[in-house]
Amino acid sequence: MPPTQQSISEEIAREHEAYARAGSVRHHPDRGYAPYRSSLLRHPRQPLVAVRDPEAVELSGPAFGVTDVTELDGDLTRRHTGEPLGERIVVTGRVLDRAGRPVRGQLVEIWQANASGRYAHQRDQHPAPLDPNFTGAGRQLTDDQGTYRFTTVKPGAYPWRNHTNAWRPAHIHFSLFGTAFTQRLVTQMYFPGDPLLPYDPILQSVTDDAARARLVATYDHDLSVPEQSLGYRWDIVLDGPAATWIEEGR
C-alpha cells in the first residue's frame, strides 16, 4: 500500500522539526530524505570524502559559446509551427556566485511540463494532453550581467507515484554551470502562491525555511508584457568551495 498524503505530510513535519532542533544551517537537501521515496536506494551511506586540493580539476569547468545555442532556444513558444496552449510567461533573473559576481557566458538549460502538466517524454503517462506545439526544453547563455531570460508557458501541476494523491506543484527544471565544475547546479523553480507547495516532498526536502523560499520565483508586474505575458523573476546563486568565490581572480 503506498503511503497516504497525510502520513507523508507527517514525515515532512518531523523532518522539519528535527532540522530545527539540530540548529545548524543546511542549504541543500539531505540526499537521504525519506519522504521522497525514490531516494531510499539511491543515496550514499558513507560520508562524502573531502577534497581540498587546490590543483583539483573540478576547480575549472567546461566552456560554452555561441555555437551551443541558437537565438530561438530562449523562446519555448516558437519551436513549432503553431502556438502552444497555456498562459504566456517570461522568466528572467541573474546567475551569481556566492560573492555576488555575475556568472557570464555560461549555459542555462530548462525543461518543463506543458500547460496541462504533461512532459513530452514517453515515460510520462499522465493522461493529460500532449501539445503538438510545445516541447518544453530551452537553453541560453547568460549575458555580461549574468542575466538569462526565457519566454514559455506556465507549466501545469502533475501527479506522480511517490504516495497516494501525490501532485507536483508547477515547476520549471533548471540546469546551470558556473566557472568551476564544483558550482554545477540542477534545481527547480516554483511559482509563488501555489497551494501544492507544502505537500511536495521534493520541495520540502529543503528543510531550511529561508533556503526553500529561494526556490520560489517572485511575480514582477514590471516584467509582464501588456496583452501578452506575465513576468516572473528568479535569481540563482551557485554554491561551490570558498576558493571559487572568496579569492579574486580564480
Binding site: 512532459y119 515515460r123 540546469s175 540542477v186
Partner: peptide, 12 residues
C-alpha cells in the same frame, strides 16, 4: 550570498 538549493533532475 546564500546558495540556491539543489533539487533532483527527476525522470523527464
Amino acid at each position: 550570498m546564500l546558495p540556491t538549493p539543489s533539487q533532483t533532475v527527476g525522470p523527464f
